[in-house]
């Protein structure tokens, strides 16, 4: 029998950091589903290293700027893996939490603020992106593709990059009228970024207009920082510049996402 009598009531306090309770929710679910994700978010980037880095790399006689193609490619793949996991986790799951399984509405009935609901889910997305890239970094280090102890700097960089892409994607997914829009996001933003933002070949070989576009993508800034870290060389652009640019995406994305969430949840 449940004691719900007024006398016996222990009044619940508010959670100390409400967003952590939200994060805990996603982690409980993830404990059960992580195996399925290992394949796609970790093993496949590794296969890409083998098939592309070693395979195609063997045909790149000159290397890139004097570097082995494999070594040059790996940091790019680390950044793009982080981006893809971050965006992947910020699209269908967010849409579903609004429209299909409605988790956000269940959460908004609890003593959580919109910002807590958003921050908790974002934290989980960062966790996913971070663990995937950390494991990937470790494996590529075993391949001998990591050439500098500076490589550990990759970890905070991918966190920032993930936040810079995930936050605006949260806003987009909250706004998207149907899941077709998510498909369009991949087709017109994620895939072109992956292919042209300096992951597979240097941005400098793009024609000038496209090159400017590539520089504007958050991915390029992440790639350049990761590359500098694993190769132990100076990045092409100033480090504070990169960090500020990514932070600007993150902050703008957060503000947009909070507005979009509020529009859906507080009506």
């Amino acid at each position: 029998m449940v004691d719900v009598s007024v006398a016996g009531r222990v009044r619940p306090a508010l959670p100390r950091v409400p967003a952590l309770a939200v994060l805990a929710h996603y982690l409980v679910g993830y404990r059960r589903t992580w195996r399925a994700g290992v394949f796609s978010s970790f093993l496949l980037p590794v296969l890409t290293v083998v098939g592309f880095g070693f395979g195609v790399g063997a045909y790149v006689d000159q290397g890139v700027g004097g570097l082995r193609y494999l070594d040059w490619l790996v940091p790019g793949l680390i950044a793009s893996t982080a981006m893809q996991v971050a965006i992947g986790e910020s699209t269908w799951p967010v849409l579903s939490n609004f429209r299909w399984i409605k988790t956000y509405f269940a959460q908004s009935a609890a003593p959580l603020r919109v910002g807590d609901i958003l921050a908790g889910h974002l934290a989980f997305v960062l966790f996913r992106a971070f663990t995937s890239t950390a494991a990937f970094l470790l494996v590529t280090a075993l391949f001998g593709a990591v050439r500098s102890p500076w490589a550990v700097a990759v970890l905070p960089v991918v966190l920032l990059l993930s936040l810079a892409v995930a936050a605006p994607t949260f806003a987009f997914s909250a706004w998207a009228p149907s899941d077709s829009y998510l498909a369009l996001l991949f087709r017109f933003a994620v895939i072109p970024m992956t292919l042209f933002a300096g992951v597979f070949f240097p941005v400098e070989s793009l024609p000038s207009g496209l090159r400017q576009l590539a520089y504007a993508t958050p991915l390029w800034h992440g790639v350049d920082l990761c590359r500098a870290a694993t190769l132990g060389v100076a990045p092409q652009w100033s480090v504070p510049g990169h960090l500020l640019y990514l932070a600007a995406w993150a902050i703008a994305g957060w503000l947009l996402a909070r507005r979009a969430f509020r529009r859906e949840l507080v009506v």
């Binding site: 619940p12 306090a13 508010l14 959670p15 100390r16 409400p18 309770a21 939200v22 805990a24 929710h25 409980v28 269940a106 959460q107 609890a110 003593p111 959580l112």
Partner: peptide, 10 residues
């Protein structure tokens, strides 16, 4: 139930 309880700081 348990994850929801966490939202109330339980």
């Amino acid at each position: 139930l348990t994850t929801y309880a966490r939202y109330f700081g339980i």
